[in-house]
Nucleic acid binder design. Structure first.
Lengths: 212, 212
DNA sequence: ACTTGACACGAACATGTGTTCGTCCCTATA
DNA sequence: TATAGGGACGAACACATGTTCGTGTCAAGT
């Protein structure tokens, strides 16, 4: 396949740049003006070329109907998850009551391929302290949880131990009438307790660490 | 502040939904048609109300110039990073040669607040094996690296040990004429080697773990 | 020289779209 | 009852924007 002409490349780059700045696509005349092209028909012509090469999609007769393919078709696959509080060994997990929109002070954006196919009922907590290093989770990490009060055996869940008044993140196994909470670190011993002492707060979906 | 009327809420919701589906904002007449409103002026009127309440921004005289505030203004803060290969103890890191656009088989989307202020020269590798558990990094994790061949003392970097033919992820300290590579796990001993034996491949920026 | 194809021009043309205006229908309030 | 304000109508109006068409240029083949 022949390479794109300089002008075609410039047009493509401009559209991408424009999209980063504006939230809506450029018009043909925006492109024309920016690149100093003398006629809209020239832009139209080159846009058609770009479309044939599947680099963009055009929606006919719709103003600003240019979509950039290739790069992150974006938005669709990205989920915003509210960081509603902290998780620490000695504190109960804040309940994701009204995780409506925007009322969380902080948000985490992440691709949906990371968090799986459950965009709903997700919330995030910032880890405080080193109580979960055995689960390879560090102080300052952000854990993404799926709000649920039950789970399958073997899943890693955030549980509140009523008696000990303690939050912990462990693999959950129901064994007869007792519960085994298995640390991720295989060299550490599991905790055994009764089923009515544990309150499952959510299932671990993802961990995100940001290095300063 | 008074609540939004049912119609205003519907308009706001529709714009958000439209944006999810189309990559470009709706026109006033799109809104009119969808909600069965008889006149464009009604839409205009309600749009003005929404704008006064800072729920949207309108760009005057620009077609489809509606921007939804509040929710993830999206795109802007999200970065797509190519996963260009694997990182394992015994393998050299694949060089991010042509991390152009889209030629990577896999991409990771993540908010720019997580990866810091360096959107460029970022690449990602999937961790293979348990050689980095001491850095709280598990098998299957994705590490985000900033491509660079030098670093400051104390930064965590991916280095290739030429002599040992081995990749490792450690804190880097240049001490006189030798290099100390300090595992994140404080209970483990550091590695000492000569400066010309280490080739810095990139600086650790973030770690993302996806639980099945 | 002749043809062909990739590109570029410029000028209309036809809609797409935002804006404005006068009017009307309610409900709450004085 | 009179009045004011939120909200809705419908019809223009004006310009923003996509589309089309006839021409021109230039380099590569033939």
């Amino acid at each position: 396949m022949k390479a794109l002409s300089r002008r075609q490349q410039a047009i493509y780059d401009f559209i991408a740049r424009f999209l980063d700045d504006n939230d809506y696509p450029p018009t043909i005349r925006d492109i024309q003006r920016e690149l100093g092209i003398s006629s809209t028909s020239v832009v139209d012509y080159n846009l058609k070329v770009l479309e044939e090469r599947a680099m963009i999609r055009r929606n006919r007769n719709i103003s600003r109907g240019i979509e950039v393919l290739g790069r992150h078709t974006s938005r669709r696959n990205v989920i915003s998850i509210p960081v509603i509080g902290q998780i620490a060994a000695g504190l109960p997990i804040p309940v994701p009551d009204d995780l409506a929109l925007g009322d969380a002070t902080d948000m985490v954006e992440i691709g949906s391929d990371i968090v799986g196919n459950a965009p709903r009922d997700l919330f995030a907590l910032r880890v405080k302290g080193h109580s979960m290093v055995d689960a390879l989770i560090n102080d300052g990490d952000i854990v993404l949880l799926h709000a649920q009060e039950t789970c399958e055996n073997g899943e890693t869940v955030a549980v509140w131990l009523k008696e000990q008044k303690e939050t912990t993140l462990k693999r959950f196994y129901l064994e007869g009438d007792r519960v085994r909470l298995q640390p991720a670190n295989v060299t550490m011993d599991p905790i055994y307790t009764t089923a009515d002492n544990v309150a499952i707060q959510g299932k671990l979906v993802s961990v995100v660490r940001s290095i300063v």
